[in-house]
Amino acid sequence: MGMFEGTGRVIKKASFYLCCAGMVFVMPLMALTTVDVISRAIWGKPIPGTFELSEYLLAVAILLGAAYTQQVKGHVGVDFVTKRLGPRLRALSESLCNLGCMIIAALLAWQGYERAFEETTVSDMLRIPQTPFRLLVFVAGITLFAEFLLDFVNSLKSLIGGEK
């Protein structure tokens, strides 16, 4: 049990720090767009590639924040049925749901990885390759998987605990 909790803490820390790393990109996103508008207003010249850079910045911020969002249960679900279930049934449905989510996360990780290296598309203006950004789908998938795995083990624990 101790080892599991230790691993759990590491996963949670990792998701949190990844999200922190991602969220700072909101500031350059904000600044870039603002400077682009100002530059257009004053010098009549936009910042080249603002559009596609914004897309990449958004990708970084969102994909790195995906697992943390799950950690704080930010991905919403419908609760009005499960709320009425007994603790054991609820634990059972939670385990099943976490399993379903693990499948999705695994697919995102696997295909995110495969697709990232297959992809030869670059951004149109600045010719920045998509590959590193697509690779973040893999990062999002694998960290989401870890978070769901933790939730899954916890729901299993309460399922078994509920039996006693």
């Binding site: 936009p46 559009f51 596609e52 149109d124 203006m125």
Partner: peptide, 20 residues
Amino acid sequence: SPGGHQTNYIKALGAEPIFM
């Protein structure tokens, strides 16, 4: 811009291409 050469043409003509 639809991308590709059209992006380069727009640039070469001194305008700002936005790919969408």
